[in-house]
Design a protein around this nucleic acid. Structure first.
Length: 364
DNA sequence: AACGCGGGGTG
DNA sequence: CACCCAGCGTT
């Protein structure tokens, strides 16, 4: 069971809408089922400013559902040209023809019959019946997802099924508010979209003007900029490398300073090679000791913002630098006690210090 | 569950 | 340039 919602969500939204909502959108005058339907289709993934001129031209050329159904598809596509997502136009045309055949030339008022028409999903069907007939159905478009994510502090990308389910549940609860009058479902639907489009915008929302600011969870917790959770980016590429862990007879570790730019710039780390062969070659080039006497340690996984790195440590004990390559500024033996005084990448430090801990606990 | 569709706006 | 926008249908 969830706690009862503040009963004033819809009321405050409506009071705000009466004063500050958008009342002059082309499809509001007159607000007929056909015009509402057409506007909702045009506004799928398309902003009002972009769609408005297309809407005006479309209804001037095809003023009724019957005109649309009887028009050649090519005419409809021509009116759509430049709007994008042309499947919307094909679906619109097909749906109009089906209305002519199956629904007496009218758009059905039944939500399931609407959803069965091509191009009309759950949210669009709800937007149509609520705006055209004041029927009590919740919408959940991008605007409402953003408003509800912030207002209720819902974490997670709204595209995730579990998150979307939660948002639908919240939208349904608000629409069921008994303080939301039967006569005002059209305005309530429009008010949510107006709030999302004009105040509760994706970036830099105008919270000080928002009618919901007093009990908005994101506002209270300072998480307005973090919600809704952005769509996860493409999986970062996985990269691999080997690191050479060489110790001398006294247990000191050979560390190398990274170049001044790039990842881990100027930090001290284990010498790194792109693959096993290059790691072996690095050992051969710089170190004297039994090349074959290496330990293959468990891999280390580390995530950067733009890629993931898996490191394969190879360890040699009792190694020494070849005579002709002595200590220099970028390569040095470091005693375990010194590790704390150097800048070392977290995963490398963890690797080295885990070993130190192990030696202390189980060593002779 | 993931993807394609698309032109336009935005940081 | 990458990402997002009054989503939906397909795979």
């Amino acid at each position: 069971m969830t706690a009862p919602l503040p009963p004033s969500f819809a009321q405050r939204l409506l009071a705000w809408f009466d004063v500050s909502g958008r009342h002059d959108l082309p499809w509001q005058h007159p607000r007929t089922p056909y015009r509402v339907w057409l506007s909702e289709i045009m506004l799928q993934q398309t902003q009002v400013k972009t769609a408005a001129p297309y809407f005006e031209r479309f209804v001037q050329r095809l003023p009724t559902l019957r005109d649309l159904a009887l028009a050649p598809l090519d005419d409809v596509l021509a009116l759509w040209s430049g709007l994008g997502y042309y499947a919307r136009a094909r679906n619109l045309h097909a749906a109009a023809r089906r209305c002519l055949e199956q629904h007496g030339g009218e758009l059905p008022r039944d939500i399931d019959a609407l959803t069965a028409l091509p191009g009309i999903g759950r949210s669009t069907a709800a937007a149509i019946v609520s705006q055209a007939w004041n029927d009590r159905f919740a919408i959940l478009d991008g605007n409402v997802k953003r408003v509800l994510s912030r207002y209720h502090g819902v974490d997670g990308w709204p595209g995730l099924p579990a998150v979307e389910k939660r948002l639908w549940s919240l939208a349904d609860q608000h629409a069921a508010d008994p303080l939301l009058p039967d006569s005002r479902l059209a305005d309530y639907t429009q008010a949510q979209m107006d709030l999302g489009a004009t105040l509760c915008t994706r970036s830099d929302p105008a919270c000080v003007l928002c009618p919901l600011q007093d009990d908005c969870v994101a506002r209270r917790e300072g998480r307005v900029a973090e919600l809704p959770t952005p769509k996860p980016g493409k999986a970062p590429p996985q990269k691999y490398a080997h690191v050479v862990w060489a110790e001398d007879g006294e247990g000191r570790i050979l560390l190398q300073r990274r170049p001044p730019t790039g990842i881990w710039a100027s930090l001290w780390t284990l010498p790194q090679a792109e693959d096993e062969a290059l790691a072996m070659a690095w050992f051969e080039r710089h170190l004297a000791g039994n090349r074959a006497a290496r330990e293959v340690l468990p891999c280390i996984d580390h995530a950067f913002s733009h890629y993931k790195l898996q490191l394969q440590p190879l360890r040699w004990r009792d190694a020494s630098l070849r005579d002709r390559i002595g200590d220099n500024d970028d390569l040095r033996w470091v005693a375990r006690e010194e590790l704390g005084t150097l800048g070392i990448p977290a995963p490398i430090r963890k690797l080295l210090e885990a070993d130190q801990l192990l030696n202390r606990n189980t060593g002779p």
